[in-house]
Design a protein around this nucleic acid. Structure first.
Lengths: 159, 159
DNA sequence: CTAAAATTGAGACTGAGTCTCAACTAGATT
DNA sequence: AATCTAGTTGAGACTCAGTCTCAATTTTAG
């Protein structure tokens, strides 16, 4: 089953109307690994130019409220979004110099986490774990000569 | 030794000039646990109204580049900053409803982390680990009736 | 089919953060 | 201590992501 179909079902179950625009935005969002809001706006408009910016942003809020969208913030540049629905939970390791992002899983953390959360009487909804560092390549570049991080790339576009 | 003196030394060692304004901003920043940029601007100006907003933001960038400032982003509202210099590393557990923030330490994570990072040939610079959930109190409130998270409070002001 | 409710597009608006530039220091040099 | 100069500042214009407003449109319920 396609991921976007399941997400559409999820939204429907929450009583959210599935309009043509929303379907389109969801499908385009799902097709990227990481994307900025403006990239998504452009991407959607390439297909259907009449879709308003506001509509795209509103869908992002819906996805967030449905708990299937993560936001990754950096010092430079706009946040990147990621539709997490149907993906195994993973954490991120990023190079602060070149912007490379590595996704990885670490089940041992997940367990420790539950423990800590329960101790404080919390009900866990989500979590993010981000490691910042220098990748192999960038470790060998003189930091004084290195240019500012260019702005993080979108890793890959998947159908 | 006061924390801000050590931070000033750190900046000096990096060849950064210590102006009156910078000293003031650093001191005010250190005196809060978490703060927004605009809160810091207001706080600094309460003491020295002539300090420009730009100056405050520039100090935040310096602290960030010196690796002693963390930024915490949320969906609603502006990011919160935190001067981490001289504090034992800790992670955050936040209530998405009322904005309560709990700081905790978990040494077992730190070890696992190093492991993962090395596997990928990275040199670790920093990391953040954030858990989002509902605190005891908010678990018992009907989510439909609950108001949007008000905006996160600054926990406490320490001298 | 009609009415009520939700959604949309368009564009104005907000607010955090950045940039520009002339005036002004901090700190090195004498 | 006086001088020099590169780095810093204040003021305000500017940018840009994201939000809001509202009339027009679409959807769903009856």
């Amino acid at each position: 089953m396609k991921r976007f179909v399941l997400i559409e079902q999820l939204l429907k179950d929450k009583g959210i109307r599935l309009t043509t625009q929303r379907r389109l935005v969801v499908r385009r969002a799902v097709s990227h690994l990481h994307f900025t809001a403006e990239e998504l706006v452009a991407d959607v408009r390439a297909i259907e130019p009449s879709v308003a910016r506001g509509t795209v942003y509103r869908v992002l809020i819906l996805l967030h409220e449905a708990g299937v969208l993560e936001k990754h913030d950096f010092w430079h540049g706009p946040p990147y979004y990621e539709v997490t629905f149907g993906k195994a939970h993973h954490d991120h390791l990023m190079c602060v110099q070149c912007g490379e992002i590595i996704e990885f899983q670490e089940p041992r953390w997940e367990r420790l986490q539950e423990e800590v959360v329960k101790q404080h009487g919390y009900q866990l909804l989500s979590h993010t774990h981000k490691l910042y560092g220098l990748c192999e390549r960038c470790q060998h570049v003189d930091p004084k000569r290195a240019s500012k991080p260019p702005h993080l790339h979108v890793e890959e576009v998947v159908a």
